[in-house]
């Protein structure tokens, strides 16, 4: 399924909703949304991931880019990733670097 990423900024929280397949061809779309979010100097990034069906290492690279772009003070939350996307995060240790939560309310609390 084709990839989409849409950003909303509210109260210094940038929420990016991800859907579809995130591979090396679609990663620039995600990266562009990180750039848009960064312009608002958010204090937190919330990635809505329940509709993200697939993620290759190109997606992990964007997470590293986000961290470098926004600085280590800005936490990255990942809300409700699917089982196999989560498995990739765990295998590569990225589950220690982003905050994985079950729902949006926890991410913005």
């Amino acid at each position: 399924m084709s990839f989409t990423a849409a950003t909303e900024i509210d109260n210094a929280i940038a929420t990016i909703t991800l859907t579809g397949d995130l591979d090396a061809s679609s990663a620039p779309v995600f990266r562009e949304q990180i750039d848009i979010a960064a312009q608002a100097s958010p204090k937190r990034i919330v990635l809505m991931a329940s509709g993200l069906d697939y993620m290759a290492s190109a997606g992990l690279r964007v997470l590293v880019f986000a961290n470098q772009k926004l600085g280590t003070d800005v936490d990255i939350y990942l809300v409700a990733p699917q089982e196999l996307v989560l498995e990739t995060l765990q295998k590569t240790g990225f589950d220690q670097s982003v905050i994985i939560v079950d729902d949006y309310d926890t991410a913005i609390a």
Partner: peptide, 13 residues
Amino acid sequence: LEERQVGGLGVYL
């Protein structure tokens, strides 16, 4: 994340 070298992750996976 801030210390990550991202090269090689794809091959690893």
